[in-house]
Computed example of a mutant assay.
Amino acid sequence: MNYGIVNFFHPNHADSAMQKTCMRKKIHIITPIRPGGPQMWGRLLAKELNIRDEWSATHTRTLPRMIMTPFYEPADVVHTSVPITYRLWKKPLILTLRGNFMIEYYYWARMYPRSIRMADIVTVSSHFLKETLRLPNALVIPPSADLPQMPVRQRTDEHTIRILIVTKFCFPQKSRGVLTLLDALSKTKIKKHPISIAILGGGVYLNEIKRESRRCGLPVTFYGFTDPKPFFEQSDIFLYWSKHDNTPIAVLEAMSYGLPVVANNVGAMTELVTHKETGLIANTPDEFTAYVNELFDHPELQRTLGEGARHAILTTFSHARVVPQYESLYRGVIS
């Protein structure tokens, strides 16, 4: 008697599942070994592709596999954020640029021009980067972030205002930006509004910035390279300052948690943050201090900007909006 129960262990069902897996197109995503924005981008992209029936994605961030890639590649598409300047295979090659290699001094930066010429498609994460690198044929696909299932936080005026700073201490321009932030905070209304400052991130310049930060006399705690999610959940305001940047993923993460963002006008910041709608963008340290004071004095502005920030993630920077743009590229180069 048939009770309408499907036997998933029947050979026909097993064959069907195997066929479905074999039909998936293989995408090989390659990112730098060092933790940071590009590596996070590759990990999240692979994760999002693998929950779709059409793709089977692998994420490489180890040196041995990178060394082998030019000689052997089983994937249908290679999607890399590190330069590939030589290959024995003819699989489609997509190069994604997330920073300005012309001023970021690391050992493979000089390999990018040749890698750009070799790639079938070049994508960049902002219009700013496209113009800066003079790549008229590059496609702009913005970065993306998770949208946590949580409401925009509510806070009262009485408790200490919790400030969060997340950056990478691998580059001097970003590292020195933390000192600029602390100097700006030291000029705010901290006597009227008590604050605590959590700083996340690791790198070779961390200890130097720690030493210099003692001069500011502020309640600062450095947590090193750690999971930022609990800090995003517990903080009230997110601050960012760098002398050089493109599209810092930490800003998008803060926005996704409903944090009001105050940042300087650097790189493609205006492509991420809409001034007075999803955050505040300062052109000078004094202007930065004024914006922070405005948030201190007006909790309702914090809530309004936080709500706008989450809406921007949902409508523009969520994985649901961004990943399909990469899928279209894959289908195009495979066909």
Rank of each mutant, 00 (worst) to 15 (best):
Q302R: 15
R211E: 15
R153E: 05
H10K: 13
F222W: 13
Y86H: 14
T156L: 11
A75K: 08
L49Y: 07
Q39T: 06
R114F: 10
K25N: 11
I249G: 06
R24C: 03
V261D: 03
L295R: 02
P299M: 09
T226A: 09
K174Q: 15
A290W: 01
P194F: 06
I94S: 06
V261N: 03
E48K: 12
R65P: 00
T160A: 09
A198P: 00
F222Y: 14
P136F: 03
M111Y: 10
G267C: 07
M150D: 04
F296W: 06
V204L: 12
I33E: 15
S186F: 07
I94W: 04
M1K: 09
Y86M: 14
G279R: 11
L185N: 02
C216N: 02
L314E: 13
D183V: 00
V124F: 05
P113W: 05
D53I: 02
T188F: 07
F71G: 00
P11V: 11
F231P: 00
P142Y: 12
S242G: 08
H127G: 12
Q149P: 00
Q39Y: 01
H298G: 00
V323I: 15
D53S: 15
K20Y: 02
G201C: 10
G177S: 10
T31Q: 08
F225P: 00
S213P: 07
G267D: 11
G36H: 04
Q234F: 00
T315H: 09
K90V: 03
L305M: 05
K91G: 10
L45T: 10
W55S: 06
G308V: 08
V152R: 05
